[in-house]
C-alpha cells in the first residue's frame, strides 16, 4: 500500500517540501490513505460507483423529463410561454376520436407484435439450440434485422409494400392467386392488395415489420437462456417418458422464466413507444388506423406546435406503465 502511494507523494514535492507534506493531514499521501479506507466502506463505494450513471441520467434525462411533465400540464405552444392549466390537456385529448383510436391501436400493436415476437423468437431459439452445420453462420445472420438502422430497413419494407411495385403482389399475381382473391372479393383488384392503405392490412403490415425487426432479439436472448439448461434434466425426463412438448412445458419454460420476464418487459416498453416504424411506413394513416402514442404526440406537438398536448399524449400511459414495471421488477427480484 505504502509503495503504491510513493510516486503520488513525490508529485506533491513539486509544491511542498516533503516534510511539510507529510506533516499536513491533507497531504496527498494522507489523503490517499484515507481514501483507501474510505473506499472500503460499502456505502461510500456504492455512491461513487453509481455516480457517473446518475450524473448522466440526471443531466440528460431527468431534467428534460420533468420539463416534459410540466409541459403536459401547461398550454405551451412552440415559441410562446405556457401557463399552468391542470389536467386540461388530458381531458382535451381524451375527447378526441383520433386519440382514442390511437390508444386502441397502440394496445393492438404492442399486444399482437409481442405475442408474435415471443412465439417466433422461442421457436427460432429452440431450432438454433440444436447442433447442425452452419449453425454459427445462421445465428449471426438471424440477427441482421435487428442491427440494420431501423429507418433504412423500414424503407426497404416501404418498397416491399409499395402500392404499385409491391413484390408481394407480384408473387400473388405470378402464382395466379391475386386474380382468385379478387374474384372471391378478398383483394380489391386483380393486381393484389393495397398493403398500407386498408386499415386492417396496414396495421398488419406495420406489425409484421415490427416482428421482423424484434424477434431475432428474443431468439438470441432465449437461446442464451436455453444453453444454461442442464441437458441431463431433459434426459432424465425423457427416461421418465415425458414427450417433447411436456419437457418444454415443464422444464424449459419454467427455467427460462427469469430471462423471459426481463426481455418481455423491455420489449413491451420499447414496442409501446415505437416511433420510427410508423413514421416511415404510414405516418398514422390510413385515416389514423396506425397512429401510435409516439407518432400522434409528434404530430400534435411538433407538426401542430402544441407542445403541451403533445406531452400529455406521450405521458398519458406513463403512470400505468410505471406501476406495471415496478410490480414486475419486484416480482422478478423476489423470484431470484
Amino acid at each position: 500500500m505504502a509503495k503504491q502511494t510513493l510516486p503520488e507523494s513525490q508529485v506533491g514535492v513539486v509544491s511542498y517540501p516533503r516534510e511539510v507534506a507529510a506533516a499536513r493531514p491533507w497531504s496527498l499521501a494522507a489523503l490517499r490513505r484515507r481514501l483507501a479506507t474510505w473506499l472500503e466502506d460499502e456505502r461510500v463505494l456504492f455512491v461513487l460507483l453509481v455516480a457517473p450513471t446518475l450524473l448522466i441520467l440526471v443531466a440528460f434525462l431527468a431534467i428534460p423529463f420533468f420539463w416534459g411533465v410540466w409541459l403536459s400540464v401547461s398550454d405551451k405552444v412552440v415559441g410562446r410561454p405556457g401557463a399552468f392549466v391542470g389536467l386540461q390537456n388530458f381531458f382535451t385529448i381524451l375527447d378526441s376520436s383520433i386519440f382514442r383510436r390511437t390508444v386502441q391501436n397502440t394496445f393492438v400493436y404492442t399486444g399482437i407484435a409481442t405475442i408474435f415476437k415471443l412465439v417466433l423468437g422461442m421457436a427460432l431459439a429452440l431450432l438454433l439450440n440444436r447442433h447442425f452445420r452452419f449453425n454459427r453462420l445462421l445465428r449471426a445472420s438471424m440477427l441482421l434485422p435487428w442491427i440494420v438502422p431501423t429507418v433504412l430497413s423500414t424503407l426497404a419494407w416501404l418498397w416491399i409494400f409499395d402500392a404499385t411495385y409491391s413484390v408481394l403482389n407480384w408473387i400473388l399475381r405470378e402464382i395466379g392467386l391475386a386474380r382468385l382473391l379478387w374474384q372471391l372479393g378478398i383483394a380489391p383488384s386483380p393486381r393484389g392488395f393495397v398493403w398500407l392503405g386498408t386499415p386492417g392490412l396496414a396495421m398488419g403490415s406495420v406489425i409484421a415489420v415490427n416482428v421482423w425487426r424484434g424477434f431475432p432479439f428474443f431468439a438470441i436472448t432465449l437461446l442464451a437462456g436455453l444453453q444454461t439448461i442442464d441437458p441431463e434434466l431433459h434426459e432424465a425426463a425423457e427416461i421418465d417418458g415425458a414427450g417433447g412438448w411436456a419437457r418444454f412445458w415443464y422444464i424449459t419454460l419454467p427455467l427460462l422464466r427469469p430471462i423471459l420476464t426481463v426481455v418481455l418487459l423491455f420489449s413491451i416498453i420499447v414496442t409501446f413507444a415505437d416511433f420510427q416504424l410508423v413514421y416511415v411506413l404510414t405516418r398514422g394513416g390510413p385515416h389514423n388506423s396506425t397512429h401510435l402514442f409516439a407518432t400522434l404526440a409528434y404530430q400534435v406537438g411538433v407538426i401542430s406546435g402544441k407542445l403541451g398536448q403533445g406531452a400529455a399524449i406521450s405521458l398519458f400511459m406513463f403512470p400505468v406503465l410505471l406501476l406495471a414495471v415496478i410490480l414486475q421488477l419486484r416480482y422478478i427480484r423476489r423470484e431470484t
Binding site: 441520467l57 413507444a273 410505471l322
Partner: peptide, 13 residues
C-alpha cells in the same frame, strides 16, 4: 424506469 420516458417529445427540452 428511465426506459419509460418517451423520447419523441423530450428531444425538445
Amino acid at each position: 424506469i428511465t426506459y419509460l420516458v418517451p423520447q419523441t417529445l423530450l428531444f425538445i427540452p
